[in-house]
Each structure stands twice: as structure tokens, then as C-alpha cells.
């Protein structure tokens, strides 16, 4: 079956949606503000004759000309830029961490969002970057180091059972900190960018449609629920958790949120997004979800000529 056809009932313009999914995506880089400014990257690209244009909604994202291989430019060598799909730069900005905070990135590799979070934190604070795949972790480490990130602590664990123990209290300031049941301190924020069916990346990787199956959707949705639930548990009361995927499947998006807000003390909150998008769906395939899942946002490829994306912001009850 054509996995994209199943979304006809929820996509307002299925023809535009399908047409956009068939177009390749331009190469985009994000400026790493730990090491450079958008202005300096722009001047370096201009001096080197690299064709680029700003994306409009985000000062630090440049679409590159078709003939540019970003890895072979001085700005890449210096760690000034990171190749990152335009919409994938969304969730870190929605999480909006502050310098000095404790932030969790439970599904971090290969690190585009991790390095973006570190830059938003001015590389100050504790950024725990976890992944279950050791090979992908080494890519994460290489990317973080090239970007000059020093605030990241890298862990190798199953995100469904993440332990806070390694991030227990440093003996030097134990008085000021509260701890959770397993001995660690809770996080101020978490960015839960889970593994998913990835149809939203079809413009970059058409193979995702070949690999798609209903049983995979069902299996991975259970994993996503557990990862998001654990992230909520280890975030402090009043803290923020952002959930994101690059799939259009409501089973992996709104249904996961619906379960987690029912089982955990947290709620969906509104957020602003300047990119064109639509609200989360409250009905799918005979199921109904909590009306608050409308606060989540769906970005389809035909909206802004990007990949597809899903993003929701949750607040842990105070």
C-alpha cells in the first residue's frame, strides 16, 4: 500500500501534499552560534562563492545552492555550520532552553538538535544527550566536538528506562539541589525527538516508504509512549517537555500524546510557530483523542516546501 495515501482524510490538499513529497529537498545548514554568527557565515560563503539564501523564518538557517557540498567548506571545517533539515530546527526552538539549565535529549544521535540546544543554552548548563545506538553515539560525539560543545554529557541507555543516577548531586553543591527517587536531579526541560516511521523525510530518503508497515507503526508507538513518559517523569514540576517526530502517522503523534497526558501529570500547552502548519488531529481511524492534542502542530511538506514534521509542547504539573 501507499503509506502516504492513508493521510488523504487529514491533509486538506492531498494533491499538493503528494506532489511536494516527490520533490527533492534543498540542502540546508544551521549556523552554530557557539562558534559563529549568521553574518560571519554569510560573509565566508560569499567570499568562497558558495550560493545560499536565508530561509526567512529563522536567521540562522541557509538553503544552499544545488551544487554545494557543505562538508567541503571552511565554515563546516570550523564547526560554524551543521547540515540540518529546515523543519528539524523547530523543536529545539520550541523547547527554548536557557543558559545554565539542566536539559535532557533522550534520543540525541546524530546530534543536530543536541548541538542546537547547546547553542541556545550558550553552551552553559548540563545537556544530557542519550542514545541507545553506540554507532550513532560516536557520530553524535564527533558532531558535538566539531561544534565546540562542552556542556554535553553523553550516555548510552534505553531512553525508556533512563537513569538519573549519573547526574546526581555534585558533592560541592548538594545543599541547593533536590533529587528524584533514583538519586539524580530532575531536568528543567526535555526534547523528546523519538525514533519514528519518518515519512516526513521522504523528500530526502524515498526508501522510508518501502520500509513502512502497519506493524512497525504499532510497535514503535509503544516505544514512543514509554520514552515520552519517562522524560515527563524525570522533568521537574513546572518544567517543559517537547515531543517531536518526522512522521504523519497519528498513531505515533496525537495518540502517543493522548496516552501520556492520561497517564502522567502533565498537559499540552500552546506555542507560536511562524511556519505554516495545521493543528493536531483529534480523530483518526475510529479513535478519538483528548481535545487538547489540537495544541500540537503538523507541518506538511507542501506548507513551506520543507520536510514533514510534528511537534507538541507539554508542561509538567507544578
Amino acid at each position: 500500500m501507499d503509506p502516504l495515501a492513508r493521510y488523504d482524510p487529514i491533509v486538506a490538499d492531498p494533491e499538493a501534499f503528494r506532489a511536494a513529497c516527490e520533490r527533492p529537498l534543498p540542502s540546508v545548514v544551521r549556523v552554530n552560534e557557539i562558534k559563529a554568527t549568521p553574518d560571519r557565515v554569510a560573509r565566508a560563503f560569499e567570499a568562497a562563492g558558495v550560493g545560499f539564501e536565508p530561509v526567512g523564518w529563522h536567521d540562522g538557517l541557509f538553503r544552499l545552492a544545488d551544487d554545494v557540498s557543505p562538508g567541503n567548506t571552511w565554515p563546516f571545517v570550523h564547526g560554524w555550520v551543521y547540515g540540518q533539515e529546515e523543519v528539524s530546527a523547530l523543536p529545539a526552538r520550541v523547547l527554548d532552553p536557557d543558559p545554565g539549565e539542566r536539559v535532557l535529549d533522550p534520543c540525541a544521535a546524530p546530534g543536530s538538535k543536541t548541538t542546537q540546544l547547546a547553542a541556545l543554552m550558550d553552551d552553559e548548563g548540563l545537556l544530557v544527550a542519550n542514545d541507545s545506538n553506540l554507532g550513532r553515539l560516536s557520530a553524535l560525539r564527533a558532531n558535538a566536538e566539531r561544534c565546540g560543545v562542552t556542556s554535553v554529557a553523553v550516555t548510552h541507555a534505553d531512553a525508556r528506562h533512563l537513569s538519573l543516577k549519573p547526574f546526581g548531586v555534585s558533592e560541592r553543591r548538594s545543599e541547593a539541589r533536590r533529587t528524584t527517587s533514583d538519586g539524580g536531579e530532575p531536568f528543567d526541560r526535555a526534547l523528546v525527538d523519538v525514533p519514528c516511521s519518518c515519512e516526513g523525510t521522504v523528500r530526502k530518503n524515498p526508501d522510508v516508504l518501502e520500509e513502512w508497515s502497519p506493524s512497525h507503526v504499532e510497535g514503535i508507538a509503544g516505544v514512543q509512549r514509554d520514552i515520552l513518559g519517562r522524560a515527563v517523569e524525570v522533568t521537574r514540576p513546572g518544567g517543559t517537555v517537547v515531543y517531536s517526530t518526522c512522521t504523519f502517522a497519528p498513531e505515533e503523534n496525537e495518540a502517543v500524546l493522548d496516552d501520556v497526558i492520561a497517564d502522567h501529570d502533565c498537559r499540552l500547552v500552546e506555542f507560536d510557530l511562524t511556519l505554516e502548519h495545521v493543528a493536531g488531529v483529534t480523530e483518526w481511524d475510529g479513535d478519538r483523542y483528548d481535545p487538547s492534542v489540537r495544541r500540537a502542530k503538523r507541518v506538511y511538506p507542501h506548507h513551506n516546501d520543507t520536510g514533514g514534521f510534528f511537534c507538541a509542547k507539554l508542561e509538567v504539573a507544578a
Binding site: 552553559e124 548540563l126 553515539l137 556542556s151 554529557a153 553523553v154 549519573p166 546526581g168 553543591r173
Partner: peptide, 13 residues
């Protein structure tokens, strides 16, 4: 490292 955790720390990086 730009933060502090308890020492020793058994993690990847």
C-alpha cells in the same frame, strides 16, 4: 565540561 556532576561519572563522554 561546562557543568558539574558527581565524580566518578560512568558515562560515554
Amino acid at each position: 565540561f561546562a557543568a558539574d556532576v558527581g565524580s566518578p561519572a560512568e558515562i560515554e563522554a
